[in-house]
């Protein structure tokens, strides 16, 4: 156990994403106030907290879906006040969603292929004629996508319409679509919500495999404490939009403020 965790610890590199003093409000409701944390290359970083703590808002800020009123984000040596979703995607940050956000009318294959769209270059006329370069491009990306399909073990469903798949598989397709972008950082918003034990174990295995094999940095939000404590290197704890804890799983577990937030305090 110790040998394994030290081997994993050796993989962790420099800080690649740093969030500093981010505040986000919707009208009078403060979703985040002055949250700072950093993410190191190749690590598995968890964000936890009770419902409404601002975890998903935090991911949406990193993604550029929400624009914070205050604070900065350092990423790849540049400082941003807010991010633009297109640029974020181009710069190698991918994302899965809490409530499934798959393209329901499309097949599994097309959903994952759409994750490659940023890398596809042929213009609309070539696509209309499906001539040389457009066809070659389509096939090249199909090969990459098939690799991901094999990796996540969803070969049997590639031509199925996504809306018809069971929930656990849809979650896997969501992950596949994000992986198709070949991201440096993968943001996972509750990848195990609503799953049974077996599906959770599968998903944990996939997340760790992604981290090990592709070296992808992973930021995940999760409610299942056993999962978080098992797979993450460092944990941020949010409560009512404020950071109340940050550190290794053991440190966080020992942190009195965190215990209070989760269990409640007797007065």
């Amino acid at each position: 156990m110790t040998g394994e965790s030290s081997a994993r610890a050796g993989r962790i590199g420099e800080v690649i994403l740093a969030v500093e003093g981010v505040s986000l409000a919707f009208g009078g409701v403060k979703a985040l106030s002055g949250v700072s944390f950093d993410v190191r290359e190749h690590e598995v970083r968890a964000i936890i907290g009770p419902n409404g703590a601002g975890k998903s808002s935090m991911l949406n800020v990193i993604n550029g879906v929400y624009h914070p009123q205050e604070g900065t984000i350092h990423y790849q040596g540049r400082e941003y006040h807010d991010m633009d979703p297109h640029e974020v995607a181009l710069s190698g940050i991918a994302r899965t969603f809490q409530s499934l956000a798959l393209f329901k009318g499309m097949s599994v294959l097309d959903n994952i292929m759409s994750g490659r769209n940023l890398k596809m270059r042929s213009n609309i006329l070539l696509q209309a004629m499906r001539l040389g370069p457009a066809l070659r491009e389509e096939i090249e990306h199909r090969e990459v996508v098939e690799g991901i399909i094999d990796f996540l073990e969803i070969q049997a469903y590639r031509k199925t319409q996504v809306g018809r798949l069971p929930y656990g598989l849809q979650k896997r397709v969501d992950l596949a679509r994000a992986l198709a972008m070949e991201p440096r950082i993968l943001l996972l918003d509750e990848p195990m919500a609503g799953m049974n034990m077996e599906e959770k174990q599968d998903m944990c295995r996939f997340i760790l495999d992604v981290n090990d094999q592709f070296g992808t940095t992973i930021v995940l939000i999760e409610h299942d404490m056993s999962v978080v404590m098992d797979i993450s290197d460092r944990v941020v704890v949010l409560d009512y939009g404020k950071k109340i804890g940050d550190g290794s799983p053991d440190e966080v577990r020992a942190n009195q403020a965190v215990v209070d937030a989760y269990l409640g305090v007797s007065h």
Binding site: P85, A89, R95, A101, F103, M113, N117, M181
Partner: peptide, 21 residues
């Protein structure tokens, strides 16, 4: 082709489409 997938992505879930670029 990928232009068609972009259209359908926007149709089915525009926020997710934006996030994948």
């Amino acid at each position: 082709s990928h232009i068609g997938r972009e259209w359908m992505a926007i149709r089915d879930m525009d926020v997710a489409a934006e996030v994948i670029g």
